[in-house]
Design a protein around this nucleic acid. Sequence first.
DNA 1: CGGAAATTGTACTATTCAGTTAATTGTGTC
DNA 2: GACACAATTAACTGAATAGTACAATTTCCG
Lengths: 222, 222
Amino acid sequence: MAVEDFAAAPKGGKTGWKQDPEGVRADILATALAEFAESGLSGARMDEIAAKTRTSKRMIYYYFGSKNELYQKALEESYRAVRSGEEALELDHLDPVSALKRLTEFTFTHHRENPNFIRLVMIENIHKGQYLAQSDTIKNLNRAAIANLDALYERGVKTGVFREGLSPLRIHWLISAISFFNVSNATTFSLLFGSELYGDLGQKTACQDASDAVLNFVRAQP
Amino acid sequence: MAVEDFAAAPKGGKTGWKQDPEGVRADILATALAEFAESGLSGARMDEIAAKTRTSKRMIYYYFGSKNELYQKALEESYRAVRSGEEALELDHLDPVSALKRLTEFTFTHHRENPNFIRLVMIENIHKGQYLAQSDTIKNLNRAAIANLDALYERGVKTGVFREGLSPLRIHWLISAISFFNVSNATTFSLLFGSELYGDLGQKTACQDASDAVLNFVRAQP
DNA sequence: CGGAAATTGTACTATTCAGTTAATTGTGTC
DNA sequence: GACACAATTAACTGAATAGTACAATTTCCG
């Protein structure tokens, strides 16, 4: 059941509500995620989160125990949501160069469309990963991405289009760096250097630049 | 205050202190910079900052007025310190390819050696650049970097080693992305994918990868 | 010297905010 | 219809914390 559906439930009258613990949990989590992404862990206010849910502060503590636990659950939820969006990507039927190009462009676009996720990861890095470290759930989700990239890279090496001696980790690092920075530092970069890279056209160019940079990095030199 | 207490006061010299407003200001600023970088704007505590200076909380307000103003001054100071470290870089006497390689490796290393600066920029992005936006000082500092890169790029195009149609901004964007991400996301990246890229050897490889990626991106294809 | 200005320490306040108390109402199930 | 548990509300508490009042001390400079 989607959170939006729950919103349609009538609240007024005496016999307003249905028992829906999962819906209430999901509502709180979605609101908290947005609020932590907006203001950071210390900056977010429990009263503010409560006001933006259709339930109460008491219920947040009822379900999540404390601010820190809520933050951690929101972080996990954010990773889960983002990774589930990545599953549709089918790269096996493409030739290695096309596949790597598609993966890079997908990652670039995907990061751009999930700024809240990016902001939570920034916040988590500010906090030195102390909440991510406690979450085994998240760690497992990310191995798959590397495994996929490994297969892709080996295919490319075999057919001679990719150079030898790289590791999928280093390729992933490069793709992530460009795609992440593009979103995470958009504000300061625009302020310091103008916003020409952050209009529609600029971002098209940037996406193209990203895949050029990655492909030229991995490709065997003729 | 009893005379004994006064004599025991660890005030340095025999009879108290010298007027040193600039020293006190600098002390506060350096301490605040470290503390904001460590804990963020909301997370940092004025009492904690005060305790780590050799002066008092009262003096922080005396000189800086408020927490937010102190944060802004610390941000400015951080930019100033970092940019002044870049001045030693002389690229004009190198051929374009060597110069670009050197610039990339320098930026990579420089970012790595200034994690507090990186963290303040992350924090500023979380706050959507609202303090950076108020600081004309900082904006001017960064135009120079682009101008230098522009000259370098044009030299390379003229001698045929760089491809046409790029802008210095896009090159700077790529160099920054890699160098910044390497530091900003070191914790989460290590947690998720292992820390092999973040040992001494791993970082040497990463630096090499950075300059490879930038050079291959800019170089004319033979 | 002696007064003005700069500098500093102590102790305080006003507020914000995470977390709680305690009582109540609705729902599903037997 | 009785029982357990899900869900809800509003006021409250205690700790943390940004910011201040004010007196005391020191330097500066005539």
